[in-house]
């Protein structure tokens, strides 16, 4: 059966997975994985036809992100989908040494657990909430009807009603700025990529930070290593090919409800 990657605009987790796919080479050849663009903020992810196992789609911690469908099973969580692609390709995007691998996993967790919810919150408020607020009640009800997870559905409602609490705003700014600080500190020894060799951590981090440059410019001020790294990741052919899939021409401004902000320490 065909393998299909459903992805949103190349930003955040969709960018990370599209770049990993291009690095893996699995997007070409006779058994190539087909890419299908979907509009995450239209709720398209909850209307994918022909699925037989939907657990990971319905309850993705990541929220609205890319979905790799293999034999009817929906696979989610961008870091793990990227690992899958890399492993199938016998790839080089994960350190082989156990400790270096642990460091990459820890890095990705800091991004997905702390930075991603914050970036999704700030991005959605700046560049997504209006679109949902402008919808009619009926259209919005139709959009959210197939969403299985109650807490994800609640994040859609909060976005539409403009429920962006001040405390979460302060917290989110600090977390995005903290992620940038972490990147800057990591690169200070002159390395090109976050883990030394290019890895999934570069794509996951780039995906979440790319759109923050315009929204939270102060976090990136006087961060020369980060600026150079952002340009380096962007210039990578796999990232260029991912960005070229944008339907809007402004992928960095495309957001959809993401992971929740930690509810318990």
């Amino acid at each position: 059966m065909a393998t299909i990657l459903y992805h949103g605009e190349p930003n955040g987790p969709s960018l990370a997975v599209l770049a990993a796919l291009a690095e893996s080479g699995l997007d070409t050849g006779p058994n190539a994985i087909a890419c299908r663009a979907i509009d995450l903020l239209a709720g398209d992810r909850h209307r994918i036809a022909g699925l037989t196992e939907t657990l990971a789609l319905d309850f993705a911690v990541e929220g609205e992100g890319p979905v790799l469908v293999i034999d009817g099973e929906a696979m989610t969580e961008s870091v793990f989908v990227a690992q899958y692609l890399d492993e199938v390709a016998g790839g080089a995007l994960q350190p082989r040494d156990a400790y270096a691998h642990w460091q990459m996993l820890m890095w990705c967790r800091r991004i997905t657990e702390r930075c991603a919810p914050a970036a999704a919150f700030l991005g959605l408020r700046a560049q997504g909430a209006d679109r949902l607020a402008a919808m009619s009640d009926d259209d919005f009800a139709t959009l959210v009807a197939p969403i299985v997870s109650e807490d994800l559905k609640q994040r859609w409602h909060d976005t539409r009603t403009g429920a962006f609490p001040d405390a979460a705003d302060t917290d989110s700014r600090a977390k995005v700025a903290g992620a940038v600080d972490m990147v800057e500190a990591q690169l200070v020894d002159g390395r090109d990529w976050l883990m030394g060799p290019l890895s999934i951590a570069d794509f996951e981090t780039y995906g979440w930070l790319m759109g923050m440059v315009a929204i939270l410019p102060e976090a990136f001020a006087d961060r020369p290593h980060t600026a150079a790294w952002l340009a380096r990741v962007r210039a990578r052919p796999s990232v260029q090919s991912a960005l070229a899939r944008s339907a809007t021409g402004r992928p960095e401004a495309a957001w959809a409800p993401g992971p929740e902000i930690n509810r318990w320490g």
Partner: peptide
């Protein structure tokens, strides 16, 4: 199997 490993990671994150 790589898809099984993906599922194992998914459950641990969940």
């Amino acid at each position: 199997d790589a898809q099984d490993r993906w599922r194992v990671r998914w459950w641990m994150k969940f």
